[in-house]
Computed example of a mutant assay.
Amino acid sequence: MALQIHILDYGDIELETSFLVLGHECGRVRRVPVYGFLITGGEYPIVVDTGYRDNAIMESLGMRGLQYHDNMIENQLARHGLRVGDIRYVLHTHLHIDHAGKDDKFPMNTTVVINRREMEFSVSGIMFPQYPKPDIKHLIDRIYEPEAMRFLDLDITGAEEIIPGVWCERAGAHTEGSMNVIVETAEGLACICGDVIYDFNDQIVNHVYTNNWMEPRVTGNHSESKRAEKGAIKKLLNNYTFLLPIHDRPAKIERQRVVGRLGMSVPGPMTETVPNRPWFPV
């Protein structure tokens, strides 16, 4: 059975647009989704990212959480006939407030997989309060339980396999320890790329405030250099057939261009297409 990726809808958040795309529409409030992903068809079911803890915790960043009963991780998994105890691995692209808030819902015999550099970065204070105490403290508690945590050393080892057809690699963008999750699907390689990309239209298709040919726009929320951010986005566009960020719908990529957008699973039918043209500034 081929591997498939299903979107888990954890609700929405409202935030300033310039947080998503550097310098774009400062002061405008925008509502964006918060997704996680369920990988099925392999040796074990895998969840990638678990969303934010609750609506109130988003206020610590000056954002508004819009999470309802249907968005609870238990209910999202139930749509696919699974319970939290059925999940063998939880992988984290990184540990920001909207990515690792529900890990304590999973039993200790579910292994949480993190790039070790991200764990170190989360307690450094550099991007506080994007790493809230309840989430990080739970992960520290997991370190002391047998097999409850697996650390990857992606900056040293390169890619590391989780199960056949699923592996992780260093993202090189957004946070110092961010990682991408690669899934081998029947229609090509899919990359769950966390927050390396926030918004396909404004960063890549129309790449606002950018004149240079095929030059992506960086996000307004990163700890790496702008050159590193641009390079990481270009790497994604060069290497993968499908890209799945956390705050935008998945895209299909051909020749470094976004050619279509997908629905709630990958592979899956394209719900809309994007004209196959060069990137033009607006």
Rank of each mutant, 00 (worst) to 15 (best):
M214K: 08
P245N: 03
E16P: 04
Y240P: 02
I233V: 14
T93S: 13
V258N: 03
R255N: 14
G188P: 02
I97D: 01
V196S: 12
K234F: 00
V181N: 05
D248F: 06
E161Y: 01
A100F: 02
T50K: 08
G158K: 00
P278S: 03
G65F: 07
N238S: 13
I97A: 10
S178F: 00
S265W: 08
F128M: 01
Q76Y: 05
D135Q: 13
L20T: 05
L154M: 04
F280A: 08
F128Q: 09
G165R: 10
E147A: 13
V274F: 09
V218L: 05
V112Y: 01
G268P: 09
F121P: 00
Q130R: 06
I46N: 07
V259Y: 03
I5N: 04
L3C: 05
W213C: 05
H222G: 10
M119F: 13
E120K: 07
K105Q: 14
L236N: 05
E16L: 10
R83S: 15
Y44T: 14
A100P: 00
I5R: 01
G165T: 07
L8G: 03
S178Q: 09
K102L: 14
I57H: 06
G165H: 10
L61N: 06
R257L: 09
P216L: 04
H96Y: 10
P33D: 07
G65S: 11
T273G: 12
H69Q: 15
N206M: 06
I192P: 00
N71W: 03
R249E: 11
L66K: 13
H174D: 08
I246N: 04
Q67S: 11
Q130F: 11
K102W: 13
N180S: 02
E145L: 07
L139I: 13
L243E: 01
G172M: 05
D153K: 11
G42W: 05
V29F: 08
Q4H: 10
N238R: 15
N75C: 11
N109K: 13
Q203M: 13
L8R: 04
K105P: 00
Y35F: 14
G263V: 04
M127L: 08
H6W: 08
T271K: 15
L77K: 11
G260R: 09
T50F: 06
